[in-house]
Simulated scan of single mutants.
Amino acid sequence: MIILHLIGIGTGNPDHLTFAAAKAMNAADLILLPRKGDAKSDLIDLRRAICAELLTNPVQIVEFDMPLRDDRHDYVGAVIGWHDAIAALWMEQITARLPDGGTLALLVWGDPSLYDSSLRIAARLPDVEVRVVPGITSIQVLTAAHAICLNDLAEPVLITTGRRLREQGWPDGADSLVVMLDGHCAFQTLPAEGIDIWWGAYLGMPQETLAQGPLTVAGPEIIQRRAALRQAHGWIMDIYLLRKRGPV
């Protein structure tokens, strides 16, 4: 019997992990840590730091190299193939490290249920019981960093991706948008007048960077700062909230 714990670790700050997350880590027989290349070495370092700080039991830790996703026009097909390859790597490690069964833990950025595919990948594994330990999301860390409410009074919020915002524009029915997984500053494709933005990069980390204001003013500044940060660190994780300004 293999039990797989998908543990939400927030934005990489050990302080963001719950007691339940720490218990699940210490109860594991094996923790797998993915390596994503030299450009994102900070990410594996953060996972190592979390293990060093929170593990009090002798848990086996194994690092593995993540496969690369095909950069092709068929985005969905490329992602499905990528997920298949990741599942095969997980299964390879399970077979080699837990031949008689046991508990495996994977540390997932944010929460495993929100714009993360660990649950979809885990569904490919035969005879594995999946359990989820929820984590703080980057949305929560963003609103906390700016000390703002996620939504206007009695109003909804729509969570979307940079790709969809770029391809389909502002969705109908929402005045507030949270935009995740945006590598190309999709907000610059919108008519900026009357929109405010709250942006954050490396949230919860020592290099956390914030910006906010009218999109007409803050947008160009964010584009420049984001490019400089990516150049300096070799990678970037960011998220932002957009809100249409109501009539004065």
Rank of each mutant, 00 (worst) to 15 (best):
L215M: 13
R48G: 13
L6I: 06
L6P: 14
M1F: 00
A144H: 03
G101N: 02
A28V: 15
I139F: 04
D84T: 08
F187Y: 13
W199D: 11
P247M: 12
I7F: 02
R72L: 05
I7S: 06
L241N: 06
D71I: 05
D65A: 10
Q212D: 02
R245A: 10
V76C: 10
I136A: 14
A228Y: 03
G200H: 02
N57V: 07
E129N: 09
E155R: 10
I148T: 08
V217S: 04
Q224I: 01
G200N: 09
G110L: 02
E63T: 11
T137M: 10
T56I: 08
I61E: 10
R245M: 10
A24H: 05
L165K: 08
L215H: 09
K40D: 08
V130I: 10
G246F: 05
I159F: 06
A186H: 00
A87C: 04
G169L: 07
D71R: 01
L150I: 01
F187E: 10
M66F: 07
A21W: 00
R120D: 15
G37P: 08
Y75K: 05
N57A: 13
T103W: 03
D182T: 12
D74K: 09
A49Q: 08
E63Y: 09
L142C: 09
D70K: 07
A49V: 05
L104S: 06
I236Y: 00
I2W: 09
S176G: 14
R35Y: 13
V179K: 05
E193L: 15
Q168D: 15
P112L: 05
V108E: 09
P214F: 05
R243C: 07
R69D: 10
W235T: 08
V79S: 07
H73V: 04
T56L: 01
D152Y: 02
L242Q: 04
E129T: 15
T95E: 14
H73P: 03
